[in-house]
Nucleic acid binder design. Sequence first.
RNA 1: GGGAGCGUUCCCGAGCGGCCAAAGGGGGCAGACUGUAAAUCUGUUGUCACUGACUUCGGUGGUCCGAAUCCACCCGCUCCCA
Length: 320
Amino acid sequence: MNENITDNSGRDLPAVAAVVGPTASGKSALAMELARRMGGEIISCDSMQIYKGMDIGTAKPTAAERAEIPHHLIDIVTPAEEFSCADYRVLAGQAVEDITARGRLPIFCGGTGLYLDSALEGERFSPDIDPEVRRSLSKLPPDELYEKLLECDPESAAAIHKNNVRRVIRALEIFVGTGIPKSEWDRRSRESQKRYRAVKIGLDFHDRAKLYARIDARVDEMIAAGLVDEARNLPDPICKTAQQAIGYSEFWRYGFDDIPFVVERIKQDTRNYAKRQLTWFRRDPEIHWFYVDEGEGGAENFKNIVNCATELIRAALNVI
RNA sequence: GGGAGCGUUCCCGAGCGGCCAAAGGGGGCAGACUGUAAAUCUGUUGUCACUGACUUCGGUGGUCCGAAUCCACCCGCUCCCA
């Protein structure tokens, strides 16, 4: 059933779908429905659902959902383990291969734009860098770091704001570690042949306030579902990435004494995050956007989105 | 009833006679992003016919060439004494 279209360079690329959008926009429900209709399996594209034990705060699909439709790349490491975008790319590639081999349609679903991009990219030319390089660079004053970058990789320096120390360091460590500027590595990745035939479906709202209201409501639900205890009881060593998780980091930062205050912080952080996700995805011209609050919104509109998305995917991927 | 304060742009909050459409932070909006990405960073945020004009700092009326800043009264809030 999964008849791949031959792309213009003559290679057969596996077909995949992707459902993206800001947090709380209804991606999971849409992906589930698409999976049911099209014989698909879901590949989570979420930097935090990777972590075991962080269930409520990352809005993982329920056990029932996971029993009905196979979900990949959820619960793959403990919060103590460092996990990167590059790791994700490798595992996503395996998942697609696996799902495709079984004649089913891989459906990416998630809000981590960088992870999705890295998974869909043809090749990723970013070598491993000795972490010691970053460590020593981090000790230098920001101005000096930017000066250095200006010298060894002016193209990246021009693209990165000097205040964005984290990215200045990344660009610098790539040059120090490989002798080749980051801008050059990036160019090679960008120019590489795509890995899949992908159809991307995006979810957004005409009225931003509606999205924000959904976010607030969902945070309240998470609290009711026991997020506080989940955060309190996470096993101690937690890696840098997992430490940043919204819904948990606020407890670590503000403590467990004033729960209502922390809840407000979680809502605010989530809203800001949703805005950043939208900024990321809106830049991608390949995404077909659907509006959750179109017309009357609600179940009727959801059905309509599912229908349109299904047609779109079938047409574009030539999947029956 | 007496005393001491306070009221600033969406919010908090600085300003205390001109350099103030008014610091800073938050929020909003927009943007960047290729191995920390639920991270990190940038721009913008009174109105308009926008290198200029107009309206704004609780209200009204004054002083002054000139007020968010000084004075009077009024309204509202807070705190202290009774």
